[in-house]
Computed example of a mutant assay.
Amino acid sequence: MPLDLNAIAASLAEARRGRKPVPPLTDSFPGFDVASAYAVQEINTRLRLAAGQRIIGRKIGLTSPAVQAQLGVGEPDYGMLWDCDDASGDAIIAAGDMIQPKVEAEIAFILDKPVREVQPTLEGMAAAIGYAVAAVEIVDSAIADWRIKLADTVADNASGAKFVLGKDRRKLSEIDLHLGGMEMCLNGKQASVGVAAACLGNPLNAARWLAQKMVEVGRPLDAGDVILSGALGPMVNVAPGDRFDVYVQGFEPLHLAFG
């Protein structure tokens, strides 16, 4: 029997609305693969667009070779960034609005030119970027206990939830996209450390991969789009009352509080 992708998409959307996770899709639906998962993501993307929400960028996941090996994949994945999920101006972020949130520190790129080449060069990708900011992605999963395989997270918009962008803008020439370090502190104690090279060797590599993929799927990157390029270190669990201080080399610190 063929998979009912519309019903699977609806179950994920309802899980998000009701904050009640579903079992892994890859367990519940034999044959549910990555192609099916991207089809499900696209169904929910179109429904959100029809409801008046707006895509303002993309997120890249699975940029760590170690995580790729763990899931048995050889490339990253992607999801949409929505205007309603931008928590950059929030004094306190409501953890209870999510199911099982985690945070990760990243470098975000903001484009000032579209990228429509089928195979963009690294130099061309860099030239399209207006500036970079430190960022925190708040990931969440509609899959129970984060028991995800690649198809599970892809279908669930690459486990995207909310994001926070720093106000401190830097040109690419002003930051180290190879050895630039990151430290995340949870309630005053170090919780995650990393380096820019942990993101596919250089976050620009991730951005170029995304730009090529977006041309392939018919949603090319445009001027003004935000790119969350991928985690610089391990994710950290979130609970109400937590406070995070994020230090990405070359940028002013980011501070987040959860209620």
Score class of each variant (00 low, 15 high):
E104K: 09
A91E: 02
I148S: 11
G130P: 12
E104N: 05
G52S: 03
Q70G: 06
E42Q: 14
Q100C: 09
R46D: 04
I92H: 14
G96Y: 07
G74N: 13
S88E: 08
P30S: 09
K113H: 13
L81H: 10
I60Y: 05
A142W: 01
I107D: 00
P76E: 01
L25C: 11
T45A: 11
N44H: 07
D83F: 05
G61R: 03
D140E: 02
Q70W: 04
A142H: 00
E117W: 06
A94I: 00
A51L: 02
T45Y: 00
W82M: 11
A51D: 00
A51R: 02
V118Y: 02
S64W: 11
K59P: 09
W146C: 06
A50L: 08
S28H: 05
W146L: 03
A144K: 05
S36E: 02
V34Y: 08
A39W: 04
P76L: 00
D77H: 11
E137H: 07
P30H: 10
A50P: 04
R147A: 12
Y78M: 07
I110W: 09
I143R: 10
V115F: 04
I56K: 04
I92N: 06
I138R: 09
L25G: 10
S141P: 01
S141G: 03
D97K: 14
R54Q: 06
S28G: 08
M125W: 00
K149G: 15
L71Y: 00
V139R: 03
R48G: 01
L25R: 11
A94Q: 01
V40P: 00
I60C: 08
A95L: 03
I107A: 13
A127Q: 15
A35F: 12
R48L: 07
K113R: 15
I107Q: 07
P114S: 15
Q41P: 03
N44S: 02
A51S: 02
D140K: 07
I60F: 04
K113G: 05
Q100S: 14
P120F: 05
S141D: 00
G96T: 07
I92Y: 08
G61S: 05
L47C: 04
D112H: 15
G89C: 05
A134T: 03
A87T: 06
M125D: 06
I43L: 02
L122R: 15
A94Y: 00
D90Y: 12
K113Y: 08
P65T: 13
Y78L: 04
A144L: 14
V67D: 02
F29M: 15
D86V: 09
E123G: 15
